[in-house]
Structures are given as structure tokens and as C-alpha cells.
Design a protein around this nucleic acid. Structure first.
Length: 268
DNA sequence: ACCACCTCCTGATCGC
DNA sequence: TGCGATCAGGAGGTGG
């Protein structure tokens, strides 16, 4: 569950753990931990002070440390009773001193965690290179970042160094809402179109945050978080269905290897 | 520097 | 039904 609205939802739900102290940590699949990471077990005895997000990154503030977590395709956090045995996809377990068990679950094992000292946050390259989230990105800055690139706008929206937080679902939805063809190159996007993309991004992400994200594959989670944005989807996964605006058929194609859904008539 | 492609994994679904 | 191929909400690394 990995785009900005889903990550913010996870952060919101996990805030109930703030002010709890870590008693022990079990690591069952160590490749989840980034090679440059400090030893995760340094967190034992530390208290969770806050949880923040930047783009699709979760930032757990543990006193002098920050645990950076990226869910990638399928990472999830479950809060469970300590007594429940670990599921085969629960790779890291953080046990808090009141016996609450926080488990990192990741079927495809693509997610990564990185433990750093607080003051080193700006040295983490992936975070430092991150573009602004749509809420704070100016249309001029966005336009300047895309207007020399001969890359389809769909791929540019997925580039986190240009704009942070959009993933495949919301990139598809944003381009439909702003009536722009996903194949259109960055060089072909006018300033007004860049502005339309930004305002559509803000509107869509805000609604998706309110709806607690999009749940596509139904799954049961101890978090009991089921997003509801899927009822607002206009093009994503809608190939073969009729466009709500013009009634023509929603098409599916690949751009940069990612599934892209769009309406050829509405999106010029 | 830029960009297209490959890779990391598992499980569900597709197509013959 | 069987079974290999393809696909899935992401991004880091490689090499042209």
C-alpha cells in the first residue's frame, strides 16, 4: 500500500505507538535492512517520539535515531498481540515494553528500512534528492523540471526527484483529471498544463488521504485499515469500461514498463 | 548527465 | 486441469 495517501494513513494509525519504548526486536529477513543502516537493535530501549512522512517514506523518530521505512510495493505494518505467531511474511518484529508487537509484513520483500542518526537525515541520498510534494511544489519549479525532458509525462510523474508522492494509481488518475495524454513528452507540456497537473494532484491526494487511501487487493489487516479511494477511480484498472465523461472506452497500455490507463478522447 | 532496461521477490491470474 | 507466462500500488543499480 505505497503511495502518499496510503503512507500517511499508515503513519496516522501507528501514532498510537508514540511514547512507547522498544523492548526487543526480531529480524527474520535481514535484506529488508538497507546495507548502509546502523544496527536496528540500537533501537532497543528507545522511545518512539513521533512519526512523520516525506513523499512515500515513513520516518519513525526514536530519540537520537530516525528509522526510515519505505514500503515499496507491498510493505505493511501490523500491530498484533505478542502471543500470535509470526506470519511467514512478517519479516521484522518490534516488541514494545507493554508487549505490543509491531510487525513489518512484506510479501514481495521489496521494502527497505534504514536506521540513521537524527542529524544525518540530510545525508540520505534518496531523501535529499526527493522533489517537493505537490502541496508545496510551485508550478514554475515543476514546469522547469519537466520541460527539457523528452520522457512521457506519465513517467515524469512517477519520478520522485521531480514530484514526491505519486505512484502508478494516482499518476493515472491525475492525468485523466488534468486531461493530458500520458504519452505527451515533458517538452510538450505547457505551463498551464503543468499547473493543471499540480492542482489535480493536490485535489486527488487530499481526497485520497481523507478516504484513507486506495485498497485494490482486499486483504485483512490487524490495522483494520481499508482505504476507500477505489470508489473514486476514473481510469485506473478501468480498461474496457466506459469513460465517465465521454463514454468512450478506457484504454490500457504500458509506459516505462508500468500499466497506464487513459481515455484517448478526453486526454489530449 | 541522461535514459532505457534489469533486478529485487512472491502469489494471483491469464492464456494456451 | 495443468502449467509456463505475465502481472502487481516501487525504486536502485547498470551500462550504453
Amino acid at each position: 500500500m505505497p503511495e502518499l495517501p496510503e503512507v500517511r494513513t499508515v503513519a496516522q494509525v501507528l501514532k498510537k505507538l508514540i511514547n512507547k519504548k522498544i523492548a526487543r526486536i526480531n529480524i527474520n529477513y535481514s535484506k529488508i535492512i538497507n546495507q548502509n543502516s546502523l544496527d536496528i537493535k540500537l533501537l532497543i530501549g528507545k522511545t518512539l517520539k513521533d512519526i512523520n512522512t516525506i513523499g512515500k517514506y515513513l520516518l519513525f523518530d526514536f530519540e537520537e535515531y530516525i528509522l526510515i521505512s519505505h514500503l515499496r510495493m507491498e510493505g505493511k505494518y501490523y500491530i498484533k498481540d505478542l502471543k500470535l505467531p509470526l506470519n511467514k511474511h512478517e519479516h521484522i518484529e518490534f516488541v514494545f515494553s507493554d508487549n505490543i508487537s509491531l510487525r513489518y509484513h512484506d510479501t514481495r520483500k521489496f521494502g527497505r528500512m534504514l536506521l540513521i542518526k537524527h542529524e544525518d537525515l540530510n545525508k540520505v541520498e534518496s531523501i535529499a534528492k526527493l522533489g517537493s510534494e505537490p502541496f508545496t511544489l510551485s508550478k514554475e519549479e515543476f514546469y522547469n523540471k519537466i520541460n527539457k525532458k523528452k520522457i512521457p509525462i506519465k513517467s515524469l510523474l512517477l519520478d520522485q526527484t521531480i514530484i514526491a508522492g505519486l505512484g502508478n494509481i494516482y499518476a493515472n488518475e491525475v492525468l485523466f483529471a488534468s486531461k493530458i495524454n500520458p504519452f505527451k513528452l515533458g517538452t510538450e507540456i505547457a505551463l498551464e498544463e503543468a499547473e493543471a497537473i499540480l492542482s489535480a494532484s493536490i485535489k486527488i491526494l487530499n481526497l485520497a488521504i481523507k478516504e484513507k487511501g486506495t485498497t485494490i487487493k482486499s486483504y485483512t489487516s490487524s490495522l483494520n485499515v481499508v482505504g476507500n479511494y477505489q470508489k473514486h477511480l476514473k481510469v485506473h484498472l478501468k480498461s474496457g469500461k466506459k469513460c465517465e465523461v465521454c463514454q468512450s472506452e478506457i484504454l490500457k497500455t504500458k509506459i516505462g514498463g508500468r500499466s497506464t490507463y487513459y481515455c484517448l478522447v478526453c486526454q489530449k
